[in-house]
Design a protein around this nucleic acid. Sequence first.
DNA 1: CGAATCTCGACTGGCCTGATCGGGATTTTC
DNA 2: GAAAATCCCGATCAGGCCAGTCGAGATTCG
Lengths: 154, 154
Amino acid sequence: MRLSRKADYALRVLFTLVDQYGQGPVSMNALARANDVPKRFLEHIMLDLKSQGWVASSPGRKGGYELAQPPERITMGQVIRHFDGVMAPIGCVSVTRHEPCSQERHCRFRRVLLEVRNMTVQYLDNATLAWVAALAPVSTAEVFALELVGGDGI
Amino acid sequence: MRLSRKADYALRVLFTLVDQYGQGPVSMNALARANDVPKRFLEHIMLDLKSQGWVASSPGRKGGYELAQPPERITMGQVIRHFDGVMAPIGCVSVTRHEPCSQERHCRFRRVLLEVRNMTVQYLDNATLAWVAALAPVSTAEVFALELVGGDGI
DNA sequence: CGAATCTCGACTGGCCTGATCGGGATTTTC
DNA sequence: GAAAATCCCGATCAGGCCAGTCGAGATTCG
């Protein structure tokens, strides 16, 4: 799964809304500035978020956006899926956008990709905004700590 | 991580070469036909695979390709990384193609993406061709068995 | 009123993917 | 030897998607 910029921006904004939950609306200007998102681009994202019932808007002079649901009820999986469409690494192991493949009968690495999909989906669909908001930020060192992962590079 | 067509094709071919390991070269024509890959496109892929030392070619009338290493020494992670460049779901948690982000200090969902990266990388870098080749093909039912995963859709 | 806000649709430029093509070099088989 | 099949390599290209911009309208607060 590759996160699009749009999904990235959406998540950034959602977490600042989590922080302000219950304290009235936050203007799009403030959201754009705080999260380093192009304002005109953010407009579309907020409309998307609204259409999904995740945020509510108040128009007018002191308007803005606020979370429309408690942060426990929104998951990162939902958000990413809405903006990026698929989480599966390839069409043949996707449900929402399944693509048939001529090799299905004897393809063996498909099982591996299915496993990757399952791990990813399970993790992201259990990651509620409330849970994630309580996590500590990641240090750069952790990103580069490959030995712990056992990989060759990333 | 999203698998490109190129990586997909490369893996298909590699597994038929695994099956024929030690039995002489397989012609590109046969590889293309057996795996449903456009022949002219496959040419480039095979050159890539050769440049990495994963396959060897013999020219001439009865030429073709064969695995240049035992299937235990090549992993899906290596192959995917070579063709697709990144496995990380976003630049800020990538090592080979790291991109700085203005939100690093206080971003919290970055930890989640890091975790996803770690799971993916660990799994794929441990999946040798030999191991994967021994797996049973996936049934369509398994792909759609969402309850087992706990996700909303994929 | 007027300033600041959200809303909406149209548009665009650039990059990446997934190929295709022509032509050349090499080797094996007959 | 000659022919056939193969591998090798660079150039090119169409289409689609992504990220972002723009103009203009509707709504509310002070």
